[in-house]
């Protein structure tokens, strides 16, 4: 596929975290180089090594003497795929950035991602072909996506993988978030609605990252939900207010019983009343704290509150033409 004229000046970064990948890293890099060289005039291949214990770094540095445009960054300690991916995004320089899990994603999909980008997508995600399978795991996944959409209003395509393409604007947005290593899965959807998907079947190569376990997935899901939207916190405030009102009502009820009823069981009032009052205090305090947490999270300014997707300006030609046209005879008032 020859590069269309628009690609001439476009700079592409191909980004791959690697960990203990000595087996396949050379073949991978060479395939990336072959694929990208015909397609783009200016590119870089960014590798982030997550403290590999095997020969990965040595192999890459050897390759840097033979293959152009390879940039290697080595992390200080083992940090996991998401942190390595974040390090790669922070240090990529392209107008478009393509991210790949070198252990799972076929290199041959790069041209397809680029094609979608040319059609106007700012974010292109790979989606697994088997995402609609039945099973407990995908049931939990679907629940997560539904909860996410309910709290944020953003629709995330199911089955998205680490195979992505981002425009520079989206990468800039992502790098402005302090917790981007926790939210990498969904952050791009905060930045843009021009999203496209490319369906594929992941391959399996060895390597140090491995697959995400079920428990990691669930924990990640909870983290994402809580970090993505402040609405659960609001729910908390609501619950606290309801509970404290109920406690107050219960306290009033206990008092009423104590004052109006004749035969009250020995010790019931002295048990129930303090309990009700305590719960009232606790729930009120929790509700107020929850509101302060909400305020603090807004003030800490971690995430850009908004991101401008498009900008356009009046073109002055028409306006200027009007000023130069004087109609009528001798009438100099403005129209």
């Amino acid at each position: 596929m020859s590069a269309p004229p628009a690609a001439f000046d476009t700079f592409i970064s191909i980004v791959m975290p690697v960990c203990d990948a000595a087996q396949h890293i050379e073949a991978n890099i060479r395939e990336v180089d072959r694929t990208v060289r015909g397609l783009f005039r200016h590119y870089e291949i960014v590798l982030v090594d997550d403290s590999s214990r095997d020969d990965t770094v040595r192999i890459v540095q050897e390759l840097q003497k033979k293959v152009e445009n390879i940039q290697l960054y080595c992390l200080n300690r083992r940090s996991g795929l998401d942190v390595a991916m974040v390090a790669a995004l922070d240090n990529s320089i392209g107008d478009f950035v393509i991210t790949l899990n070198s252990e799972r994603d076929p290199i041959s999909l790069i041209p397809q991602l680029w094609e979608r980008a040319q059609q106007g997508a700012e974010v292109v995600c790979g989606v697994r072909a088997d995402r609609f399978q039945r099973g407990v795991r995908s049931g939990v996944n679907r629940l997560f996506y539904r909860a996410f959409e309910a709290t944020t209003g953003l629709r995330v395509p199911p089955g998205i993988s680490d195979l992505r393409l981002y425009s520079r604007r989206v990468v800039t947005f992502i790098t402005q978030n302090n917790d981007r290593h926790l939210l990498l899965k969904v952050l791009p959807f905060f930045a843009s609605h021009s999203v496209a998907t490319v369906e594929y079947t992941p391959v399996r190569r060895g390597g140090g990252f491995g697959d995400r376990t079920r428990s990691t997935d669930i924990l990640t899901g909870i983290t994402i939900l809580l970090a993505s939207s402040i609405r659960p916190l609001r729910l908390l405030t609501l619950m606290a207010m309801v509970a404290s009102s109920l406690s107050l009502l219960f306290a009033v009820y206990v008092l009423a019983i104590a004052l109006l009823k004749q035969h009250v069981v020995e010790g019931w009032v002295s048990l129930a009343l303090p309990m009700a009052v305590m719960f009232f205090f606790i729930c009120t305090i929790l509700g107020i704290l929850s509101e302060y947490i909400y305020m603090l999270s807004q003030q800490s300014g971690n995430r850009p509150v908004y991101s401008i997707v498009k900008e356009s300006t009046s073109s002055a030609l028409e306006i200027q033409r009007k000023l130069n046209v004087v109609e009528g005879s001798g009438d100099f008032s403005n129209r």
């Binding site: 000046d9 445009n69 320089i93």
Partner: peptide, 9 residues
């Protein structure tokens, strides 16, 4: 081009 893209950030 690499220089420019990198420096632009």
């Amino acid at each position: 081009w690499h220089m420019l893209k990198d420096a632009q950030r």
